[in-house]
Design a protein around this nucleic acid. Structure first.
Lengths: 101, 101
DNA sequence: GGTACTATTTGATGATTGTCAAACCATCTA
DNA sequence: TAGATGGTTTGACAATCATCAAATAGTACC
């Protein structure tokens, strides 16, 4: 019913890849938005205050997911994104907290 | 006698720029090496275990300095680089610690 | 089945990036 | 002053990246 898109295992999360993913203003803003709630958020373009097109947003979600920062759930026609807070924290303690502070 | 190359003020250090600077394997390694000692290190190519040319190393030092992560001192013909631990920590508490852990 | 809808993929484009060789600059020393 | 030295800047190149329009894929609803 609810499928999860492929993502790296916690142990496989790479620091350089994470920093690269966070080193983009749009993605940092997305991560900040996700961090406000501790549950999945829809990933539709109209739910975010960013000045990019839908394909570009989709591209950023992929970068974040493949870096190990987010999980994407597929449910019917809509998708949900969630920050992998605990996973990232267990791999790089304090990193997300510092970035989100 | 000892000159300091231009660098951003502590308050002007930008998070995205810092993350971009750290999001490169060579630069992350350089920062890690700097972090081992709490004093300036020479920036000559032969002092670092990196497989890049001198101009490329020079380029990376510039990126790190302009991001606000390092200070470069000029003394005669040689230069010294130092991690701006306290400055970065005061701007983004915990960030460097998390990255260097 | 057909249509509307959500979101991604494809393909293309302009900008940025990491890299090096060659030229250059400033400093030290003979 | 001339040569050697430490390091940077310039210029070029290939690779990567962020971006969008158009096409595509999968799902829901009538």
């Amino acid at each position: 019913m609810t499928r999860t898109l492929p993502q790296p295992a916690t142990e496989a999360i790479d620091l350089v890849t994470v920093l690269q993913a966070l080193g983009d203003p749009v993605r940092l803003e997305l991560v900040r938005t996700l961090a406000k709630e501790d549950e999945p958020r829809p990933c539709s373009i109209d739910k975010y205050d960013v000045e990019i097109s839908a394909p570009t947003l989709s591209h950023h979600w992929r970068i974040l997911r493949e870096a190990g920062l987010t999980t994407t759930f597929v449910n019917g026609r809509t998708r949900w994104v969630e920050l992998r807070r605990e996973d990232v924290h267990s791999r790089f303690p304090g990193l997300l907290d510092a970035v989100l502070a």
